[in-house]
Each structure stands twice: as C-alpha cells, then as structure tokens.
Simulated assay, not measured.
Amino acid sequence: MLEIKHLSGGYGQLKVLSDINFTVADGTMTALVGLNGSGKSTTINHVIGLLAPKTGEILLNGVALQTDPVAYKRQIAYIPEQPVLYEELTLREHLEVTMKAYTLDRDVAWARAEQLLTIFRLTNKLEWFPTHFSKGMRQKVMIVMAFITDAPLFIIDEPFLGLDVVAVRDLLHLIDERKATGTSFLLTTHVIDTVEAHADHFVYLKDGVVDQQGAVADFARLVPELVEEG
C-alpha cells in the first residue's frame, strides 16, 4: 500500500502541493487526475523520490521514503511520460540492466520479457538502439522494462501519449492482470475516460490540492467540470 500523508512540496521555494492525502491499496489502480498545472507530475516526482517533501511523509508497504530510500525505491516500477533510454544501449541491453537493477532471476525475467516483446511487437528489435525507435516504440520499451519486474507498485505518468490504440489496449490488459495478483497502480491522466473501466479510485488535483477523491464510479458526479471539458 502507498500512503501519502499531509504531503506539501514543490520545486525549491516554489510551493506546488499543499497537504496532499491519499492511499493506493494493494491490487487497485488509483487515477491521479487533473488539468495541466494541477500538480500531478509534481506529486509523482515526490512519490518516486526526485523531490523531497517540505512537510508530510510517503510510505510504501510501511517503508518511509525519507528514512530508507533504497528499500522504498526497490518497490517501484516507473513509466515516465517522456521515455528515458540510454542511447548507447540496445533494447536487449536495456532489459539486462533492468534485470540486474531489480536482482531478477534471469531465466524467469527473460521468459516474461519474450512474452511482452511479442505483445508489443518488438521481438525482432532486440539489437536496435533507441535512435531507431519512434516515440511510441520508446514508450513500449519503457513498458516492457517495467513489466518484467515484480515491483508491488507501478507508477505510470500519462501512459497513453504516443501509443497506438492496440498498444493502449494491451497495456490496460497487462494492468488488469497485475492488479489481480495484488500489484498496485498509480496512474496520471488529464481525463479519466480511457481508464474508467480499469481504475478503482480517483484523486482529482486542482491547484495543488486534493479537490475531490473517491470511487471511479462517482467521478462524473464529483468532478462534472472535468467530464465536460474532457
């Protein structure tokens, strides 16, 4: 379980978030929703440890980011909005680095990788360098790298930008499969339409505060202005 308690923070002297509180329970997906500038990415940057909270605390399965950052970060698989790949490494080498970083059993990890590469039509591209990948293909590489891990929490920042409709469907199917095994997901999005049938809860950020949160089924009632804009 991810627990965010009274989180306030931002960039340097710029305060973006104020007293954020929410949890992501085991085996559930929480959609972090809001318009541009609402604080979604800032919240994610605090959760993954790129930014230090000014006040409050963040716990993942009882481990505090502030007191044991290594044990905390080992529990996270992160798929950023903008893919981050090493230009000098092939796709195969990216997967190998991920396996070593998460101390995965190599045979098990490669079996899982081969399934994912097939799903995202990357099987024949293991020796390719990132320079040969389109934006959508880079995003698929990030997805494969994340899903070969056994991380109990996946954080996915605006995952559908650049993905084709088939890849979006495949990603949502993978999320559903992992949720069924107890994996938790925190996913950011501008609108909730795409994940409505897959998310369990939502947190609506507005101007750096939690304006509304609850079950996804209640989203249209609680946040009508975003439904209309979306």
Rank of each mutant, 00 (worst) to 15 (best):
K206C: 01
L174V: 12
V216T: 11
I58E: 03
A31L: 08
T149S: 05
Y72H: 00
D176S: 15
S41T: 15
L117C: 01
L117T: 03
L59H: 05
H201S: 07
V63C: 03
M99D: 04
V195K: 02
L59K: 07
L2I: 08
F219L: 09
L65D: 10
G208P: 09
K206T: 06
A109P: 03
L117R: 00
G34Y: 04
T30R: 13
L51F: 08
K15D: 14
T23G: 03
D107M: 06
V63L: 01
V191I: 12
S134Q: 05
I119W: 05
N61V: 10
A71V: 08
L89M: 12
Q212E: 02
A167F: 07
L51N: 09
V24D: 10
L153W: 02
G37R: 10
V227T: 14
V203K: 01
D176N: 15
K5R: 10
P152F: 04
D200K: 07
A25E: 13
L161H: 13
T30F: 12
Y86S: 06
I175W: 03
T55L: 13
D157G: 09
V223Y: 01
T90M: 04
Y11Q: 09
G39Y: 03
V70N: 10
Q66M: 13
L226Y: 01
N21F: 07
G37K: 12
P80W: 02
Y204Q: 06
F160N: 13
Q13P: 12
E114D: 12
K73Q: 11
Q139N: 14
D164N: 10
D164Q: 14
L59S: 02
G34T: 07
G136I: 10
G214A: 11
F154V: 00
L60P: 03
H173E: 12
V227M: 13
M137G: 05
V227R: 12
M137A: 07
T23P: 01
K125Y: 10
A25M: 09
T123A: 15
K5G: 03
E87S: 07
E87Q: 11
Q66P: 04
T103E: 14
L91Y: 04
A167L: 11
A180R: 11
T149L: 01
R74M: 04
A197I: 02
I156H: 00
D157C: 09
E81A: 11
